[in-house]
Structures are given as C-alpha cells and as structure tokens.
C-alpha cells in the first residue's frame, strides 16, 4: 500500500513550479544578469562586466548604507531580543503566576500591537510625533520645561538614524516577547520547582533554565529579525527617505533609488544582488549553528 503512494504526486507540484519560475526564478536570474550591464530601463542594456561591482565597492553610500544596517540590526535584533527575553520571562513566570494570567496576556498584546499595524501607517504616526514644529514629542518636552532638548529628530543628520533606531525598537519588541512566551510554555514546571527547592535565585533560574531551554526560539528570533533589518525599506521610506544627506540610507532604499529615480537599473541590480548574497549566507550560517547546537 505504501509503495503505491510513492508515485503520482508530482502533478500537484506543477502550479507551484510554474508560478515560482515566473515570479521568483526568472526575475532573480534577470536581476543578476542586469547587474553586469549598464541599463536605464528603456534602451538596450550594455554589457559592462564587473564594472557595477567595482563601482559599488568604491561608493561611500554603499558602505554607509551597510554601516547603517549594522546599527539597525542592533535596534531590530539585539536590543529587542535582550529586552524581550527579560520581559517574556517576567511576564511568564512572575506576572502570570503572581498577578494573574489575564494581565500577562493583556501586556503581551500591548507589546505586540505595533507588529500588526502597517509599517507605512505607523511610520506616518512617528513622522508626526517627531515633527520639529507641530510634533507631539517636542510639544511634550516644551510643556515639561525641557524644550531645549527638542530638535528636528528626523531632520538632524546626527539624530536621524538614532530616531529611526528608536522607532524600530518600538516596532520590533513585541515579536520576541510573543515568541519567547510561547517557548516558555514548553518548559516543564518541575524544573523550576526543583530550582526553587535548591534555593536558586530568580536570576540563576533565568540563566540556567529559561535561556537554555528556549534556545530554539532565540535562534529563530535572531535570524528573522536580523534578516528583517537587512531588508528594511518601508519605515525608512516613510520616516526619512534615506536622508538627511543619506544619514539613514539603507541598501534596499539605495537600490530603489537607483531603479526608479536615477534610472541606473544595472547599478541597482548589483546592490540588490550583494544584499541577497549576504542574506542567504547569513541564513545558512545561522542554520548550521542551530543544527550544531541541537545535535549536542
């Protein structure tokens, strides 16, 4: 019986293969091909070999955009993961037990809310809150006598990236909280009880049990948030348009500019190709690490 089941399933894969070829494989190959040409999107592309790539490695904006991404990884992956770990642990084994499950759930939803709103819309909200003249933040600072701290948060080159980082922490925090709380549910309560009997402190328990047992979730959160940081576009488009004077330029916005504003499709394709290679390598490194970890 099980022999008979082996064959004949291939037809079910046909729509998927056709669709993936048209929407993913062909465009991907085309972009890589275009990255070796000079093309304005209208006339015939002109083969120029690796010229786009050599230009890329000498382009201060390219290096700048990847430098900004490193800081955005801190804001989108590192800080939310650390904060989320503590918040999830406190919510799960303190608030839920001592104050009540209900409160833990309400707080969790609150932290998660920014994740379900369209990034373009929350971006608009932040642009308004951070606006130099009529924005809520400067108004608040004024009203509590700290008006001198007010500034053009998104328009000042020294502050723009920090402001974007802050918005991204706000946006991202709820995801690790939800993931880690889900992971914590897996942990056998007896482990905690045993630790309590041994007189372990909350912090010892946190490090020895909590962090250790939700390793899988930690990996997933770190990979997905790091990749999300590398891909960031919408927030930057709405918050700063990469400015002021490229202070918040990121690779995907840089590529978009070259595609649709500067008509340098070849150059934009080279940027996208480099970004893609970095993401895929990073994902596989993470997967290897995770496999090695779970093999232990």
């Amino acid at each position: 019986m099980s022999q008979k089941r082996q064959g004949g399933y291939a037809p079910f894969l046909i729509p998927g293969i056709v669709a993936s070829l048209a929407v993913i494989v062909v465009p991907l190959v085309m972009t890589v091909g275009i990255s070796f040409t000079k093309w304005n999107g209208v006339t015939d592309p002109q083969w120029i070999g690796f010229d786009n790539y050599t230009r890329l490695f000498g382009d201060a904006n390219f290096w700048g955009s990847f430098g900004h991404i490193l800081l955005l990884i801190v804001a989108m992956a590192v800080i939310p993961t650390l904060l989320g770990l503590v918040l999830a642990a406190v919510l799960f084994d303190y608030v839920a037990k001592v104050v009540g499950d209900r409160w833990a759930r309400i707080l969790r939803s609150g932290f998660y809310l920014p994740q379900v709103l369209p990034v373009a819309v929350t971006g608009i909200v932040w642009v308004w809150i951070l606006h130099p003249s009529y924005g809520a933040l400067n108004r608040i600072l004024d009203s509590i006598g700290l008006g001198s701290l007010g500034r053009d948060w998104l328009g000042d080159p020294d502050w723009a990236l920090l402001s974007v980082m802050f918005v991204m922490i706000w946006f991202q925090l709820g995801y690790p909280v939800v993931m880690f709380m889900a992971g914590l549910q897996r942990i056998d309560p007896e482990l905690y009880e045993a630790a309590d009997l041994d007189g372990a402190s909350w912090w010892q328990r946190f490090r020895a049990i909590t962090v250790k047992l939700i390793r899988p979730e930690l990996y997933v959160v770190l990979v997905t948030t790091t990749i999300a940081a590398l891909k960031i576009f919408g927030q930057v488009y709405v918050l700063t348009k990469g400015g002021p004077s490229n202070a918040t330029l990121v690779p995907s916005y840089f590529a978009w500019q070259n595609y649709f504003q500067k008509a340098q499709v070849g150059y934009g394709s080279a940027i996208s190709t480099v970004l893609t290679v970095i993401i895929v390598i990073l994902a596989f490194v993470f997967l290897r690490l995770q496999n090695r970890e779970s093999a232990k």
């Binding site: 993913i24 465009p27 991907l28 999107g41 576009f233 595609y259 499709v265 934009g268 996208s272």
Partner: peptide
C-alpha cells in the same frame, strides 16, 4: 529569504 528588491525590476 529573498529581498523583494532583487525581484522587483524584472
């Protein structure tokens, strides 16, 4: 995993 930028122009 692919960023949409690498598919968008084609």
């Amino acid at each position: 995993l692919l960023p949409q930028e690498v598919l968008v122009y084609p």
